[in-house]
Nucleic acid binder design. Structure first.
Length: 185
DNA sequence: TACGTGATCACG
DNA sequence: GTGATCACGTAA
């Protein structure tokens, strides 16, 4: 079952980031590919690690201000596509970065796209987008559509299985870089 | 550890 | 227009 819009439109982005663990991110291009989400990070306009810090809207981050339930895709270091799930109400400027998945659907296609051993796909945010075929076409895509969606397969996680830690790659954010807004299984 | 990489944004 | 910067990946 695909996650509902009301799941995404809640106000606590950290809670949503935590609850996305164990859900399944899927895309459909040549075929369906997907896997279980095992690592996420929360971002909010209130802190300096976020593209939407201070509610500053730019061409790149505009999708972060849509109402929850769409994808925000951007290119990092000119090379890698990164995907976020936009959360909250319209104009709230919050999103969850998907950092890693555990592939389980369409694995042959994912290997073909990445040319990598399957387990390496779990390793980082730029690699999972390549495996799932995600590029700028996905920016703004509706997560209840047929191109990309997140499915609840009723995986039950104990709270002891979830680790909260500091987010990766945002040293420039000063004190906000230390917020424990990264969640992993 | 270090560096390639090019889009993006704040400045004129 | 231009230059500094960057939510990464890879090799070593």
């Amino acid at each position: 079952m695909k996650l509902s819009r009301s799941f995404y439109r809640r106000s606590d982005v950290c809670e949503i980031a935590r609850e996305l663990l164990g859900k399944h991110l899927c895309t459909k291009l040549d075929g369906i590919t997907g896997g279980m989400i095992v690592e996420t990070e929360a971002y909010s306009w209130r802190e300096s690690g976020c593209h939407a810090f201070n509610n500053k809207k730019t061409a790149r981050n505009a999708m972060m201000f849509e109402s929850g339930g769409v994808a925000y895709v951007y290119k990092c270091y000119g090379i890698h596509h990164l995907i976020n799930v936009v959360t909250g109400k319209s104009e709230s400027g919050e999103a969850v970065l998907i950092r890693a998945i555990q592939p389980d659907t369409g694995t042959a296609l994912m290997q073909e796209r990445t040319g990598q051993p399957l387990k390496k796909i779990t390793a980082g945010p730029g690699k999972l987008t390549k495996a799932l075929g995600i590029d700028m076409r996905f920016n703004g895509a509706d997560l209840k559509g047929d191109l990309i969606w997140i499915e609840d397969k009723k995986v039950i996680l104990k709270s002891s299985q979830i680790i909260a830690s500091a987010r990766i790659g945002i040293e420039y954010a000063g004190a906000d870089a230390k917020l424990p807004w990264r969640f992993s299984i």
